[in-house]
Design a protein around this nucleic acid. Structure first.
Lengths: 269, 269
DNA sequence: TCAGTTTCGATCATAAACGATCATTATGCA
DNA sequence: TGCATAATGATCGTTTATGATCGAAACTGA
């Protein structure tokens, strides 16, 4: 067996499991302990894994994913004040007893806080949203079937029968990557797949998009503007964007950003 | 067991409950008290947990004081040592890559700790199990569609299409209310419905039942004994119960309860 | 406060993992 | 083919982790 071949095997083993022992890797590669140790040492200095006594572990262990997960967390601090205000305005549209769909995303996640005092029927493909609502509120929580993707933190089914067909909602709330004349744009193909399924299950599609989203573009077009019932955004929206929505007969809801938060936003910029 | 592996399991256990005792961790890791103490000391200086007399506690546990904590937690302390040993023995049946189904329940929940270092495909209707595995392990986690019931902490769909039909597993693990000559008995009609659906999706049905379950009776019969492939129990099982299983050609797996725990159990009785 | 119990910390023997060395085997090149 | 070089695996002494033991310290309930 070639050296690089072993390295591949070792790396894949380490990435699939939090820890692997030297003897495991011996059995896996057919090499002796001495060789495996040498390999681990090499990969350690190359920072491909971390060497530990008795074996090796992944360099960035999954340890505690969840709401604080990296891909999720980095997005969460961006425009947090706007997102919060937008989420609040979105939740204000709901009354106790409503059935709604919340699509996973960092903007929509902010809805959980105003939702704590509500009693809705919430269908969501977002694991963190489901978790939060379950623990912090009395809303009824429903989820689709599928595998839980750690990166995006959503539940996604490769099959058509994920249970969403049986849920009908008055409103579906979703975020997006960008919002342009062509329609709603998403960045992640996985999200697109999940969202396509859900959109058909709601009467009204409400898009949560802070004003920066009108300047974003992406290659993945999810639906045309006229499918959208309303857009909730912050008061940073430009006239041109507002006119674009008006032309497509999309209702525009501008969420007031709290004064204190506006200040912190100004500092960031 | 590798040192790092133990650390992961310890952290996983500490995350789950506010405090864990040294003897609990011994049973969980199979290590001696001395080693567990050393581990706790290490993790303490690494600020991964807080060391307390008799065990360890999470560094910032009450992240969410779950509503679900109550009905779940009361059951969790009953026969905890046996449940853990049983869960460990059950997990020992699995190899990396296996596809398994874990039905929700307090006994099966104990499987999450030994599972932290595994890499399986896990389909579960238990929200806490899904949550824990997602955050603390690299296992692939799949869930059915449905509403999340706070009492039982399971995901339950009133419809047939809950996604489980697309998942086929080598083994299904489940707890039960009681185990008698007539078969497997459950206490909650909601659970019965969920379990009926899942049983058909696995080749082997493995039942986790501490020895007290052989004395329990219930009105809800889930399936006959001969549908069960194996029963995992603790060494408190009586001969009569063992003979009953033998007559039905059910494999019996007796999990050894750690010495320290055996002692505390003896006192309780 | 005191006796009884549990938990802790230190020590030590044992076992496991490691690092270095060296003989052997595989690989590349002329 | 023959030689030079590198990689591999075995060996062995060293280091490190582990578990048992035992005395000290802390907790419990009266």
């Amino acid at each position: 067996m070639l050296e690089t071949e072993r390295h591949r095997i070792i790396l894949s083993a380490v990435q699939e499991r939090p820890v692997v022992s030297v003897s495991d890797l011996c059995a896996l590669t057919g090499a002796s302990e001495a060789t495996v140790r040498r390999d681990i040492a090499q990969l350690h200095v190359a920072k491909k894994l971390r060497r530990i006594r008795g074996g090796a572990e992944a360099i960035a262990p999954p340890q505690f994913v969840g709401i604080n997960a990296r891909p999720f967390a980095v997005n969460q601090v961006i425009n947090i004040a706007q997102k919060r205000a937008i989420a609040q305005a979105a939740v204000d549209l709901c009354e106790d007893g409503d059935a709604i769909i919340i699509n996973g995303g960092t903007t929509t996640f902010q809805m959980v806080h105003p939702l704590t005092t509500k009693r809705l029927q919430v269908f969501t493909n977002s694991f963190p949203i489901a978790e939060h609502l379950l623990k912090q509120s009395k809303n009824t929580v429903l989820v689709p079937a599928g595998a839980i993707y750690r990166e995006q933190n959503i539940i996604l089914s490769p099959f058509d029968e994920d249970g969403s067909r049986h849920f009908h909602a008055r409103r579906m709330f979703m975020g997006c990557r960008g919002l342009g004349p062509l329609g709603l744009m998403e960045g992640d193909p996985l999200l697109v797949q999940a969202e396509q399924k859900l959109i058909g299950q709601a009467d009204q599609l409400i898009v949560l998009a802070d004003s920066s989203k009108f300047r974003q573009r992406s290659s993945l077009l999810l639906c045309p503007l006229n499918r959208i019932h309303a857009v909730v955004t912050d008061d940073g929206i430009e006239d041109r964007a507002a006119q674009m929505l008006e032309a497509a007969e999309v209702r525009l809801i501008v969420a007031p950003v709290a004064a204190a938060d506006r200040k912190s936003r100004a500092q960031e910029e």
